[in-house]
Design a protein around this nucleic acid. Structure first.
Lengths: 224, 224
DNA sequence: CAACGTTTTTACAAATCCGTAACAAGACGT
DNA sequence: ACGTCTTGTTACGGATTTGTAAAAACGTTG
């Protein structure tokens, strides 16, 4: 059964949503304020989180930010009052995936919840593995022999790109374009530096790589 | 090779995407405005279409509608700016299959393109073979009896040139011009040296070549 | 603004490759 | 068979490319 965390200071609304969730086969988890909401989000790892935007104390915006900052990318839906400043840019910035405007019907809310869950579960719950390393793409966590590894953002991005294009020779230019995007123009040697880091963290013997191979004069090649 | 049609009024973005597509083995087709985009979509029958939502003149929404109205059900991906009204229902209505929010990394875009193409048809891989050797042009990997071979850049370039011009007598000058380009002027004997390397790595018996044949006084000839 | 972690660049050593020279072996014409 | 021209083969110096660590630039956070 999937847990849905509801973070809202309005007790009546909490109860209504909770009841609806139970009826529809979800397990509701309730928090009356932002602080406990964040705590529950991190400990219970719910399948989806509903956050009221306007709350006394820790507001919805802060809640979202803190949850995302902790590395959770659970689907996040914002509940907003009709008069609220509903800047979609802001929503994207804080990492929200969808929003509904109060007052809403439970049917609409349910539809959105289902849609969001479908979207996020469709985004491969896959765990990719190679050697003694496991990469959980949904949780953005990399472990080696069961131990959590700390990868920086660039390292992680590069790693997932390699994972998605295994067994292929990739030139530095292609890698830069694909991983860094079209609006930054770093030196191609930047790729080398990060490959070194990946080797140091993920290879059994960094000086004799088995997975991150260099193809002299061309680029790199990743083998699982 | 699969054609991908890009309809966007931003020339810089068009170029970036075009470059990325080429690097990844697609054939890009570009349109700077909605009207020519629709025209190209109907005449070229691309494997996939990318449409910018916000364009002067014929907007992305209209482009999608017109393409669908013409009976084309090519996979269609929408590029949207971050502030745009991104109603997913609208997207479904106009027949888009997916969307990405600008600015996006080419890695993300490529992943989505691949996913979309996979849904409609399998990707093609180009593998050329001769004797007991296989050359995977998309992966840039050469195998012999299933085992990976290490070819240097010059060797690989020369090999693919031979593969693309089989059964033909090629003079050293022609080879030099085609493989090395018109800006470098190495000795013609350089070709000989690399042919020797190819024979050593790829021929069953290097001293009695079956595929890389010498045409005395003229050049070389490659037989599959 | 200071302190920190990250990304990018830089610099230099090490590894690899390329083009060429040199000589051996073969092909061709006489 | 002989001499001459072309090709096969190998080895080496120079050039290019990569590994690596450390410095510089950058961005974030308190």
């Amino acid at each position: 059964m999937q847990t849905v965390l509801v973070i809202d200071d309005d007790a009546a609304l909490r109860d209504t949503i909770s009841l609806m969730l139970e009826n529809e086969g979800f397990r509701p988890s309730l928090a009356a304020d932002g602080r406990t909401g964040v705590k529950l989000a991190l400990t219970q790892k719910p399948a989806l989180i509903l956050v009221d935007l306007r709350m006394p104390g820790l507001g919805g915006v802060e809640v979202c930010k803190q949850i995302r900052a902790a590395g959770q990318n659970t689907p996040l839906m914002v509940l907003s009052a009709i008069g609220d400043e509903m800047d979609k840019v802001l929503l994207l910035e804080i990492g929200a995936d969808d929003y509904v405007v109060k007052p809403f019907g439970t049917r609409e809310l349910l539809a959105r919840i289902r849609a969001l869950l479908r979207r996020s579960s469709a985004e491969e719950t896959k765990v990719l593995a190679f050697g003694d390393v496991e990469v959980d793409l949904t949780r953005r966590v990399v472990t080696r022999r069961g131990e959590d590894l700390k990868l920086t953002r660039a390292e992680y991005n590069l790693l997932t790109y390699f994972l998605q294009n295994p067994d292929r020779v990739l030139s530095r230019d292609v890698i830069l374009n694909s991983v860094w995007g079209y609006e930054s123009f770093p030196n191609t040697r930047t790729v080398d530096a990060h490959v070194v880091h990946l080797r140091q963290k993920l290879e059994r013997d960094a000086s004799c790589p088995e997975h991150f191979l260099t193809v002299h004069g061309v680029g790199y090649r990743f083998l699982t």
